[in-house]
Amino acid sequence: MLLSVEHVSKSFSHKHAFSASHRHLIIDDVSFQLAQGESIGLLGESGSGKSTLANLICGLEYPDSGQILINGQSTTDKKSGKKPLSIVFQDYTTSINPTMNVKQVIAESLLLGGYIPRAQLQDQVSALLDRVGLSPKLMNRYIHELSGGQAQRVCISRALATCPSLIVLDEPVSSLDVPTQVKILDLLEKLKDDLQLSYFFITHDLQLVCYFCESVLFFQQKTIVERCQTADIAKVKHPYAQSLLNAVI
């Protein structure tokens, strides 16, 4: 199994000026698995803890209990080396250093994967831009000089630079208009087929999940309340899942 999330919980400490600090539970006993080549959607409302779960999967934060395994290795195991995953964030304006041009942004990720001769660096950046449908002529531009769709394609090319097996997509199209959303999702689907990728797609939009994913996890009150294949979405039983379905019918 490519990704196994096993009974994971996470809380954060909150301290107020006139009271003792306390722990606030964000993720509560979450378990699921994701196979190689699979696209799973995590559907939940804003502020429900979805991004925290993404950070846990990527090893940016550690769970309080439970474990997360990538190809059988724990994300908390510092000796396991480079993890075969990348992440694409919702807000490209904050996930990219504004002082770096497109070439520098992608080259930074390429260099994380190991030594690359500088003579080859520009060619590899060009190839990654071409892979996501961007012209190498954009290489010397900065993020604020690109459209939203172009900027998110740069983020996708940066994610591809480390040759991942799994890409975590944290609300990757929510800041884009609908036609651009479709183009980005179609690009991701093509990349999935071409590169044998797997996706963990986080969103609050049921229609996007049905368009893009094979199965969906309904996330409410800090945990997963139902899982189903998107082809069987009309058969959901949990009240929260039914309410989301009814809202778009």
Rank of each mutant, 00 (worst) to 15 (best):
S74L: 00
L2P: 05
L146R: 12
L25G: 04
A159L: 08
F32E: 02
H24Y: 09
T76V: 09
D130K: 14
A231N: 08
V105Y: 10
A35T: 12
L56E: 04
V154A: 09
A35M: 12
A20V: 01
T99S: 14
S135Q: 05
Q221F: 01
T99E: 11
K78W: 00
P239V: 11
Q221S: 02
L42V: 15
R227Y: 08
I26V: 15
G41Q: 08
G81S: 03
Q220K: 13
I57T: 01
I27L: 01
L160A: 07
S215M: 04
Q181E: 11
L187E: 06
I106E: 07
S19N: 12
R158Y: 09
G81H: 00
L160I: 07
I106K: 11
C58W: 00
V5D: 03
I96Y: 11
G72K: 02
C210Q: 14
L60N: 02
R23N: 13
S175E: 08
V209Q: 00
Q207Y: 00
G72Q: 01
H16I: 05
C155V: 11
T75G: 04
Q220I: 06
D77W: 00
F212N: 02
V102I: 15
P117E: 11
A17P: 01
A54L: 03
L43A: 03
F218T: 09
E61S: 10
G49Y: 05
S174K: 08
G66L: 02
C228G: 08
P136L: 10
L53Y: 10
V154F: 11
L195A: 04
C228F: 11
Q181A: 09
K82C: 00
S65E: 13
D29H: 08
R23G: 02
V5R: 02
M139N: 09
S86T: 07
K79G: 00
F89K: 08
S48F: 01
S157F: 07
S9H: 06
R153F: 10
G72S: 00
Y92R: 07
L3K: 11
F18A: 12
S135T: 13
